[in-house]
């Protein structure tokens, strides 16, 4: 193991973490403000990725594709919120789970119908690809580095939005006291739609960025969704700050675990079983972190009623 490799893995973990944050922040807001558990959040991630791929292919411009991921995911979010989600706010969690599970089926199958089952690949423009040399002589992918920067910028923007702006105040008021914000004369339906669309746009954007590194395919959203759940459980429902801390923690722990555990077991095992045991344990690592957090703080690190 070299130091360079370790730094690279930490950066990969950060990149993974900020993408998780884009997913988790929307989920946690939607739950915090509307009390809704939205399993279909992963579908919005997928919608963003496919929108980016389709528009980028059609126009030849990756930038237009990225813009499309935001727009289409937000649009899909607004549409779904108005048509279905809105009816679920007053329902129990069970109905919410089933309805949004049904939405996953609809989105996934609909996308498969439109785009087929084969993965699509995005070509990142020349100017974004290639590697940069970091201080200390570490070579690292420019695109991933930009993702980290963009992710943190969005996180900063979101925290500022929540804590500094008028709509942020309304959102936070909605989390603590629904009646109060109606009393303030806020159009609650509009606020809900905006929050949902915001969450959807962030998810869609994350889908496009991750899709640019990996591939764009049906079902890409759900594994990320479940990781975002882990993030929220760790960070505490409704807390953007918790989502940020949880995302980075999960991203870094998961990436480093996959990298370090096989090496660690290699110290006292033969290589093939070290890889097997190490990677099997690494795949469970973040869930163990979650279990640990739960054990000591059942409402998460930044949970409201901890």
């Amino acid at each position: 193991m070299t130091f360079t490799l370790l730094i690279e893995q930490i950066l990969n973990g950060l990149q993974f973490g900020v993408m998780l944050f884009l997913m988790a922040s929307g989920l946690t807001l939607v739950f915090g403000v509307m009390g809704l558990i939205n399993l279909a959040h992963g579908s919005l991630y997928m919608v963003g990725a496919f929108a980016c791929a389709a528009v980028a292919t059609a126009t030849g411009s990756y930038w237009l594709g990225l813009a499309a991921s935001l727009v289409f995911a937000a649009l899909a979010g607004v549409l779904v919120e108005l048509a279905i989600i809105r009816k679920l706010y007053t329902r129990g969690h069970l109905d919410q789970v089933l309805a949004t599970f049904a939405l996953i089926l609809v989105f996934s199958e609909g996308t498969r119908w439109l785009f087929g089952s084969f993965p699509l690949y995005l070509n990142v423009p020349e100017i974004l690809s290639g590697a940069v040399v970091l201080p200390g002589g570490i070579q690292y992918s420019l695109f991933r580095l930009l993702i980290i920067a963009v992710g943190f910028a969005i996180a900063g923007g979101l925290l500022a939005l929540i804590h500094k702006t008028r709509i942020g105040i309304q959102i936070r008021a909605g989390e603590s006291d629904r009646e109060m914000i109606s009393a303030l004369g806020v159009d609650i339906n509009k606020l809900y739609t905006i929050v949902f669309a915001l969450g959807a746009a962030l998810a869609g954007f994350a889908g496009a960025l991750v899709g640019s590194i990996q591939s764009v395919q049906v079902g890409m959203g759900e594994p990320v969704l479940i990781l975002a759940f882990v993030v929220i459980v760790i960070g505490g429902i409704g807390s953007i700050k918790g989502a940020l801390v949880g995302s980075i923690l999960v991203g870094v722990v998961d990436t480093l675990g996959r990298f370090l555990l096989p090496i660690l077991f290699g110290a006292f095992m033969d290589p093939s079983s070290a890889t097997a045991v190490g990677s099997a344990l690494a795949s469970m690592l973040i869930y163990m972190v979650m279990a640990g957090v739960l054990f000591f703080r059942p409402t998460g690190l930044f949970g409201l009623n901890a």
Partner: peptide
Amino acid sequence: LWLGLLLL
């Protein structure tokens, strides 16, 4: 897709 719509 139809199953999803029916569930909804």
